[in-house]
Simulated scan of single mutants.
Amino acid sequence: MSETTETEITVVGMTCGHCSASVSEELSGLPGVVAVAVDLHPGEDSPVTITSEAPLDPAAVASAVAEAGYSLR
């Protein structure tokens, strides 16, 4: 079994399941990402855990979140 890396981020502005699905979809498209877990807190900051095969480029993560229409805390 290969090693994985977990990256913890906080996303601002998500309010519903569609929001978290959009963020999950964009982050899942990053190279090496194997799982995305969103802990949705509607109207508040929501923690997101990204599991990947290697450390992720923070700029790529921020760009993916922005593409979904949200921002990082």
Rank of each mutant, 00 (worst) to 15 (best):
G32Y: 01
P42Q: 04
A35Q: 04
S24F: 02
V33C: 02
T4D: 11
P58T: 06
A21L: 04
S24R: 11
D45V: 15
A66T: 11
A35R: 10
P31A: 07
D39F: 10
T10H: 14
D57W: 10
E6R: 14
G13A: 07
A59F: 02
L72N: 06
A68F: 13
V34I: 13
S22P: 10
V33I: 05
L72M: 02
E44C: 05
L27H: 08
E6L: 13
P42N: 00
E67R: 15
A66R: 14
A35L: 00
H41V: 15
P42C: 04
C16R: 05
D57A: 12
S46L: 02
G13Q: 07
P31M: 03
E67M: 12
G43L: 07
V65A: 01
S2A: 14
E44V: 03
A35V: 03
D57E: 11
T49V: 13
A62R: 12
T51H: 00
M14E: 08
T10F: 11
E25W: 05
T10P: 08
T51I: 00
H18C: 13
V33D: 09
V34N: 00
P42W: 03
C16G: 11
P31R: 03
G17L: 05
I9A: 08
T10V: 15
A66G: 09
D39N: 13
S46Y: 03
